[in-house]
Amino acid sequence: MGMASCLTNEELQFCAESAEVTIVPNFSTPILQLVNGEYGPFRAQNEATVPFWLATLLRKRNLCRVKPPEWMKSESLVQVLAAEKSSPNEWQELPHHYIEIAKLLFTKAEEDFAEFEMDVHEIRRLIDDIRLVRFDKIEKQFKQVTGAMTIRLTNFCAMELNLMRNFLLSSLDEYHKFSKTAEDSVQQRQTQLSDDEDSQEPQVRQLR
């Protein structure tokens, strides 16, 4: 399993950019007809829902304000963080691309948080904490691995998976090699035993 067989982080971000977000445009246009769909119509100061890539594009040209999604409110993040800390074997439900979305908003629309009465520094810190706590739990969970077994990984997020993928897949490969040699050596011993029995038979006949 090489590096090339999984997505890079940049490609994951690309995937995350198709998620929807609410924006407040400061321009008015009729429906925008684009290759992959129609967006709008946009009216100034009225909220509209667009994919992230369109939102960042408009934001770059200063044509809109991006409204941070509901789950990014600091109260709900504090709750999530507390729940993450209190349950060692469970992960809280967060958007599948939460790390990517957070990074996108922090780099492309950092000033917009204040306009929707959110403290960007606190949110950034909370999301970093959540990420670290979750990652720590993943490592603890994988400490139980000793070969073939099931591990429950619900609510695992894309970026977390991508970060662990290479290491875990190659370690599972290594475990697979071990189980294969164990099987082989057992088989070999059995055939050897039956060979021994075969060779003993003529002797018994001779004794009779």
């Binding site: 590096m3 890079t8 982080n9 940049e10 490609e11 971000q13 690309f14 790390i99 990074k103 780099t107 970026m159 991508n162 970060l163 662990m164 993928r165 290479n166 290491f167 190659s170 370690s171 290594e174």
Partner: peptide, 25 residues
């Protein structure tokens, strides 16, 4: 081998999260 793989993926993650712009090669 496992260790360098883990290091590579966490390095790639850090590079991504601290970068301002993302270019997909």
């Amino acid at each position: 081998e496992l260790f360098t793989r883990a290091q590579a993926s966490s390095k790639a993650f850090e590079r991504w999260i601290y970068s301002k712009s993302t270019v997909i090669s």
